[in-house]
Amino acid sequence: MSSSGVHTPTVSRLTDFKEITKMRLAVSVVFSSITGYFLGAESIDFVVVLLLAIGGYLMVGASNAFNQIIEKNLDALMDRTKDRPVPAGRMTVTRAFIIASVFTILGLIVLYIINPKTAMFGALSIFIYVSIYTPLKTKTPLSVFVGAFPGAIPFMLGWVAATDSFGIEPGILFMIQFFWQFPHFWALGWWLYDDYKKGGFFMLPTGKRNKGTAIQIVLYTVWTVLVSLIPAFGVTGRLYLTPVAAILILMLGLGMLYYAVNLYKKKSAQAAKKLMFASVSYITLLQIIYVLDKFIRQWI
C-alpha cells in the first residue's frame, strides 16, 4: 500500500485472490485435513502433509470461486458479500472461472499423487458443494444438511491420505465435523439473518429466528459432543481417546452447549454470534486435543 493509503494494483489483485478463494476458510479446512492426517499416519511423511495442504487449499479455493460466480448477483445484495471481487466488478466472471477451473484440475492432480481415494473424496466434495449445495441455498433450509457433507470431508480426508483406506476411524472423524456444522451454521444464519434475507438465503431449519430453531441448535450441539466422545470407548479401531482427553473434550462440549442454551434463552443475534465463535473454538481445540492425545500416548 502506498503512503497515500491507495491500494496498488498488485495489492488489490492479491486481496481479490484471497477473497475469491476465501483464504481464511481455506486455511481452516487445510488445518482440519492435516490433523486428520496426523491421526491416521503411522509415521509422518512431510511431503504428503505439504501435498495435502496444497491440494486442500486448491480444492477449497476452487469451490469458493465457483460459488461466488454462481451467487454474484445475490452477493451484491448483502452487506457482508457485496465487496467481493466479482459482485464489486473488480474481477470478471471469466477470470474467476479460470481460477476456479485451474484450481480444480491442479487440486485433483495433487491429491491423486497422495492416493486415488483422497482425490476421489476431494472431487466429491467440490461437486456436492458447487452443484447441489450452492443452488439449494436459496430454495430450502435443507441446504445446510447437504452442505454438511462436503464440509465434513476434510477431517476424514487427512486420515484417508495417511492410510489409503476408508473405515470406522475416518467415518467417526466425518461424523464429528458433520454434526458440528449444524449448530455452527445455524448460529451464523441466526446472527446474520437480516443480511442473508436480503440475498434470499434459507439458513435456519424453521426459516425463522424462533424457539424451533433454537431447540434444534441445542440438540445438534448435544449430538456433536456425544459423537466426539465415541473414540473414548475403544470401539473405533485405531482412533482412540484417553480418559483425560475425553474429559477435556467433554468440558469443551459443555462450554459450547452453554452458549447454545444461552441462545435458546435469549434468542438474540448477539447470543448467536457468541455460539458461532464458541463452535469454531470447539472444533479447533478438539482437533488439537485428538492429535496431542495420540502422540502423548506414543511417547509415554
Rank of each mutant, 00 (worst) to 15 (best):
147 G>Y: 06
265 K>L: 12
6 V>Y: 14
95 R>K: 15
238 R>G: 15
235 V>T: 12
270 Q>M: 07
81 T>I: 01
100 A>C: 12
203 M>L: 15
238 R>S: 15
185 F>I: 00
33 S>D: 12
246 A>V: 02
185 F>P: 00
186 W>V: 04
148 A>K: 03
266 K>R: 12
208 K>P: 04
286 L>Q: 13
78 M>P: 00
124 L>M: 14
177 Q>N: 11
14 L>E: 11
161 A>P: 02
183 P>F: 12
71 E>Y: 02
119 A>L: 01
58 L>S: 07
244 V>C: 06
71 E>H: 04
284 T>S: 06
261 V>W: 09
163 T>L: 09
132 I>T: 10
76 A>L: 08
262 N>D: 15
231 P>A: 07
147 G>F: 11
124 L>C: 15
38 F>S: 03
38 F>K: 03
200 G>H: 11
291 V>L: 00
224 T>G: 10
76 A>S: 05
86 V>I: 08
188 L>D: 00
199 G>W: 04
212 G>L: 02
142 L>K: 04
161 A>S: 05
86 V>N: 03
249 I>T: 14
143 S>E: 01
54 I>A: 14
40 G>E: 07
234 G>H: 07
21 T>I: 10
17 F>R: 06
96 A>R: 10
129 Y>H: 09
237 G>Q: 12
66 F>G: 00
35 T>N: 05
271 A>F: 11
141 P>R: 01
273 K>C: 03
254 L>E: 11
238 R>F: 09
20 I>C: 05
238 R>W: 04
127 F>L: 15
14 L>C: 06
22 K>Y: 03
125 S>E: 10
152 A>N: 04
145 F>L: 14
169 E>H: 05
202 F>G: 06
211 K>G: 00
29 V>Y: 09
41 A>S: 13
260 A>W: 10
170 P>Q: 07
103 F>W: 08
284 T>F: 03
10 T>V: 09
249 I>L: 06
250 L>I: 08
258 Y>M: 14
260 A>D: 08
245 A>P: 13
187 A>H: 00
93 V>E: 15
262 N>V: 01
149 F>R: 06
113 I>F: 03
245 A>H: 06
129 Y>V: 08
85 P>M: 05
258 Y>D: 15
25 L>C: 10
181 Q>G: 04
261 V>Q: 06
32 S>N: 09
13 R>T: 12
54 I>M: 14
150 P>V: 03
2 S>Y: 11
71 E>L: 05
251 M>K: 01
133 Y>D: 10
217 I>N: 15
92 T>N: 12
254 L>Y: 01
264 Y>K: 09
265 K>P: 07
3 S>K: 09
45 D>R: 08
135 P>D: 06
277 F>A: 09
197 K>D: 15
94 T>I: 07
182 F>W: 07
136 L>S: 08
33 S>N: 11
41 A>D: 14
171 G>M: 03
158 G>V: 13
220 Y>I: 00
25 L>V: 11
5 G>R: 02
141 P>G: 07
111 L>C: 11
